[in-house]
Design a protein around this nucleic acid. Structure first.
Lengths: 194, 194
DNA sequence: CGAGGCCTTGACCGCGGTCAATGCCCGTGG
DNA sequence: CCACGGGCATTGACCGCGGTCAAGGCCTCG
């Protein structure tokens, strides 16, 4: 369990004098049970969620009714629909809790003031944006080039902790393959290792 | 042909009083012939390119030697490797000219000063970042969910102008399919239309 | 005219999707 | 405590999309 402000302080992302000013009504806490939605398709996303404990997922549902997981968000991760927030358009995505979770909920206004008050927060926010882009580039590269097995191996090396916590069909969804395929890949991997 | 500063002024992205301050040595022009590289894998990217005329591409080469086009950049588009710039790491990508092109070359320092001088430029830069993310999300969604034909149709509707200008095998590369597959998709589409 | 780049077409094949059956684990209620 | 049911993983049979390889045509440019 990682309190949002503690996290900012510990990582030296915001000076403590600034932190006090940031205890506004635009920051709140929320405890959600597994399965709870915090964003539904069609809504305009107005909040960013910092995961203090638990695990969320961001996903879309395509025209054939299939889920495609875009992102997992474990402890100390942020999740939101940036495009919806920034462009004020209804979201294409859902966000729900895979585990019982504790969230810090940041209103857009909170982030705006944090940025204007604290240069470190501004820097940090920009870091998050850049990192997001880097991550998406990797993802595109993987989807364009790699077969099922390489995708799974890459996912394992990047997120070993997440593999333990989510059902396989969700990992398959993240990788853009079917649960059956993932099962076959796993079988093959164990066979060739002993 | 679209001069960079004219573009900023015409779109009211920077006030004219600020524009004058931005004619520094950190902004230069460059004319490149088709085939010229402006970024090679392994280099640290130190510049952002604004395309005044012509057409560039950003692409990677995977372990099997295959090219994967990440982005086309026609007139008035920006192209660079943001991750390499921001994190100071060697780039995974190549950028070269598909047509003879005229570029405005923005040093990182130029962008930094522009941001500090002009609030409009800051806003605009943030817009570019957000838009980049939106675009990548769409791309991931497409690659995860759609078959060859839908990808091609989506590409056509998004970038009708680019289709005319680049060889098909590059479009195939962008879509993550082979030139042969794209050819078959096109055949099928014309057959079912008349 | 020849060479090389690009698109097309065909034959073949393999990865991964689909569908269905089975088994396992676990929570719930009789 | 056991029986039942539902969710998930596995496995097998089948198939189709798209990749691979190779041949042929067309255009451009030297």
């Amino acid at each position: 369990m990682s309190n949002f402000h503690d996290y900012l302080r510990d990582k030296a992302l915001v000076r403590s004098e600034h932190l006090e000013q940031l205890c506004s009504s635009y920051l709140s806490n929320r405890v959600v049970k597994k399965g709870t939605f915090v964003l539904m398709k069609g809504e305009v996303c107005k909040q960013t969620f910092f995961v203090e404990s638990g695990l969320l997922r961001l996903y879309s549902i395509d025209s054939k009714g299939k889920e495609h997981i875009i992102q997992f968000a474990p402890e100390t991760w942020f999740v939101s629909d940036r495009s919806s927030i920034y462009f004020g358009k209804p979201s294409e995505y859902f966000i729900d809790a895979i585990e019982d979770s504790e969230l810090a909920v940041l209103d857009n206004h909170y982030i705006d003031t944090a940025i204007s008050i604290s240069p470190e927060f501004r820097t940090y926010n920009e870091y998050l944006l850049q990192n997001h882009i880097r991550h998406l580039h990797n993802r595109v590269n993987m989807l364009i080039g790699a077969d099922a097995q390489s995708r799974y191996l890459e996912f394992m090396s990047l997120y070993p902790n997440i593999i333990q916590r989510v059902p396989q069909w969700m990992i398959a969804s993240y990788l853009g393959i079917t649960p059956e395929s993932l099962s076959r890949v796993r079988k093959e991997l164990t066979e060739n290792k002993g």
